[in-house]
Amino acid sequence: MLSLRDLRVRVGEREILKGLTLDVPSGEVHAIMGPNGAGKSTLSYVLTGRPGYEVTGGAAELDGVDLLGLEANARAAQGLFLSFQYPLEIPGVPALTFIRAAMNAQRKARGEAEISAPDFLKQARVCASDLKIDFDMLKRPLNVGFSGGEKKRMEVFQMAMLSPRFMILDETDSGLDIDALRIVSDGVNALRGPGRSMLVITHYQRLLDYIRPDRVHVLADGRIAASGGPELALELEREGYDKYARAA
């Protein structure tokens, strides 16, 4: 599904990713853990095409499609979704209006027909109810005045509506209390399945109690420093990132 080969990325004069290689096979959930400044957010932004990140070497492919040559919106249409660490507010644009515009733009890019208004609303009602989102909230401008937890819930709502095949969750647990964490995790877990993969970026092990990864990778100093099963996350929780930081 996702294949990264020796990926090198600069931001300004600074090299942040220094030859990152990673494979996430179809249907698997991989976690990326690492200390602050290791390049976790850079990885999520460079994969999704945010301006300001210069790729100086390597390759990134999603099911054989070169992501790096595509505009951000074309990557989204390929089925790539980033759940933002800090979701943005979109003043004046109701959440439903925005999501429908996004959905139709993706469909258009893939040569599919637009979704009809009744079908869209039906799907929105089901997803909102699953995530315990008040439907009236979806008529308000997206994320404007929402709490941190509500914004994260809206990210998962958009993810469920847009139905991507590769999801990057960037610090999705930050700002969530235990109840919200459970609702959000249930929403994410409901999207797991064959043909869909996820990269869960997190600083703490806590989220991985709810979203159980198949593999855990340690990102330190711009490279994958170690990989293992779920037990690696527990070890990191116990021992910290010191030994990787030293090794780097």
Binding site: E71, A72, F81, L88, A101, Q158
Partner: peptide, 18 residues
Amino acid sequence: LDEDVLFYMRQRGLPEAE
């Protein structure tokens, strides 16, 4: 126009002009 907001919208699939 806020470039961060524009990137967020594009990440959801909207072309830049839209």
